[in-house]
């Protein structure tokens, strides 16, 4: 089955129809998505800024990460659930939307960045834990994270605009 076929099937599901027909579901889910953004990206940004040596230089990197990562993960879980529900609202329309595609690719890259960080330089954190500024590979992960999440947020906001949709809605 093609991706479009899958999305067309999704659009026929009861959950999707319920999301699209409800007057309140979309605004509530969107508001949750925006509030969870503050928790998730707020915490993630602070972790990135610590890697770059811009905040909390007096704390060990591992201290900041272990204290804030559970909150980041919790925020991310809410983002994924509310984001998936938003998507269910109109799967076929989002499929056509260039900003949605950019957002999904950037999300994959952001995930890849986390994986590279955690399976690489992070394993040697004890060597640079107390450094005010983390080593280059860790700083690179921090910068990539900030840039990719900024792209994800901007692209996400732009999904609302259908300038480039093949089928104008």
């Amino acid at each position: 089955m093609s991706l479009l076929g899958l999305f067309q099937w999704l659009a026929e599901t009861r959950a999707s129809v319920a999301m699209a027909e409800s007057l309140w579901a979309f605004p509530i889910v969107e508001s949750v998505h925006v509030l969870a953004l503050c928790l998730f990206l707020g915490m993630a940004t602070i972790l990135d800024l610590r890697l770059l040596g811009l905040v909390m230089r007096d704390l060990r990197v591992s201290e900041v990460v272990t204290r804030l990562l559970p909150w980041t993960a919790a925020g991310f879980a809410v983002m994924v659930i509310s984001g998936a529900l938003t998507f269910l609202n109109a799967p076929v329309r989002y499929y056509e939307n260039i900003f949605f595609r950019i957002k999904m690719v950037a999300l994959l890259l952001a995930g890849l960045n986390v994986w590279v960080f955690h399976s690489g330089i992070w394993l040697e954190v004890s060597d640079w834990d107390r450094d005010a500024v983390a080593p280059f590979r860790a700083r690179l992960a921090g910068v990539l994270s900030l840039v990719l999440w900024a792209c994800i947020v901007v692209a996400g906001r732009m999904i609302a605009y259908n300038w480039f949709d093949k089928v104008a809605n």
């Binding site: 503050c38 928790l39 707020g42 915490m43 704390l59 901007v154």
Partner: peptide
């Protein structure tokens, strides 16, 4: 919206700390 995300971070990290959560060493 990007400012909102940073706003969330700088408000929450301090409010969480005030509640004894997050970066408790500081």
């Amino acid at each position: 919206l990007l400012g909102l995300a940073l706003m969330g971070g700088v408000v929450l990290v301090v409010d969480m700390r005030l509640m004894g959560l997050g970066v408790r060493r500081k």
